[in-house]
Nucleic acid binder design. Sequence first.
DNA 1: TCATGTTCAGTCGTCATACCAGTATCATCT
DNA 2: AGATGATACTGGTATGACGACTGAACATGA
Lengths: 243, 243
Amino acid sequence: MTTEHDPIKRRKLSDEVQERLLAIIESDRLGPGDPLPSERDLMTAFGVGRPAIREAMQSLQRMGLVEIRHGERARIAEPSFGRMVEQMSDSMRHILSHSPASLAHLKEARATFEMEMARIAAQRAGPVDVARLRRTIDSQEAQRNNPANFLQFDARFHREIAAISGNPIFTSLSEALLRWLQSFHVGLMRVQGLEKLTLAEHRQIVDEIEAGNVEGAAKAMRDHLYRANDLYHQDNLSRNDAG
Amino acid sequence: MTTEHDPIKRRKLSDEVQERLLAIIESDRLGPGDPLPSERDLMTAFGVGRPAIREAMQSLQRMGLVEIRHGERARIAEPSFGRMVEQMSDSMRHILSHSPASLAHLKEARATFEMEMARIAAQRAGPVDVARLRRTIDSQEAQRNNPANFLQFDARFHREIAAISGNPIFTSLSEALLRWLQSFHVGLMRVQGLEKLTLAEHRQIVDEIEAGNVEGAAKAMRDHLYRANDLYHQDNLSRNDAG
DNA sequence: TCATGTTCAGTCGTCATACCAGTATCATCT
DNA sequence: AGATGATACTGGTATGACGACTGAACATGA
């Protein structure tokens, strides 16, 4: 076996087209919202068939670089981290559903991430931020008998903490991580009495943030998430025993 | 304007097909490596044309759920975080090149992330880990006159720190973040004398990790990254002055 | 003039067919 | 049995056609 990996790559035609389209898109003369040439124009311009154009265009759409709507020409999309993580959802769901280990890893990653968000929030939060967080908790409390809305405000709480960092990447990530994980243990919050505990923990986190207690905020966040983590475990014991 | 967002969504046929294929893929009877039915079989099975099947299949491929090779049947791919972030590269490059603010946000995100990796490493690293890091630095030093290889070992250093966490998500992220950012300031390391500084900083980080000095490791990492950050800034001053 | 409804050309979405280009399989030959 | 080559199967691409949808020009009426 002298030949391990043939370095020769057979590029599909649509890949070539995609590269050319990318060059057009990233050209300085075009910006978000501008329309691309029609598929027919492109196919005559590049000298390829329509399938090649379409495949490349679909690929660009899935990457979030263009927007395609029936009847209109494809338009350049405005870049957004939020949209990008949105489009990762399906792959993520697949990975998580096929690999319990990955689920554990993602839980750990989120805990690490949220702790860091709490630290940053404790450093940077102003009175306005704290007030907003408290209002969110109050709203959540008002919905403690409506599990769906309760979770909605739970997500909002974490998102607002991440938003204090001023970095939209963190905001998008916080939202996405929570959503991905939530889809794997629905029904958790239905346990009676758990809502009160969640609210108390959220208030504890805000208290630490308001006091500017960096490590205290991190610890409060950690306790909050690992409490939840343990309960997940308890809930899933009957399904995953192989580990 | 009473109509803000029409909740009605026009589903493409390929979306419907994609959903069905997803059900097949995530069925318990099939696992990674198993082949899917051929496009022609599927199109008769679903009663749609080949384009619909192909578009759905291509989409699944771009999501990393299946692998398609010319002449063979599509096979279910084994899930991998690494492959997922790999497929984000193009979108990420587009976002960064169109939004200087996003570049700054990503730099901050990476700094935050790497500091946390340093903290975790300082908590968990064993003698073997430390030895491996030192060997990597030595290798990097041997390549200090070869910029390409030098950067290669730089990436490896950060990856190995992330790997100490034992969480493959962190490893993949560390690699991806560095690669994405590197593609936006090539030629940085060419400045004479900078290689020595980089190596010294890496050694400092390892020293702190070996000593188990959590905050010290984080600070060393922060100094290392922000030193680089400042130099980027200096390099880009002529282009971004609006902030 | 202005508002309103209609027509129409342009565009994407999908289908059908055909052919090309790789793989895998199996019968054949040594 | 093992190497060899023909063949069927599969994905990749091209072409032509038609339907569905959009947007703008156009005609109509007040």
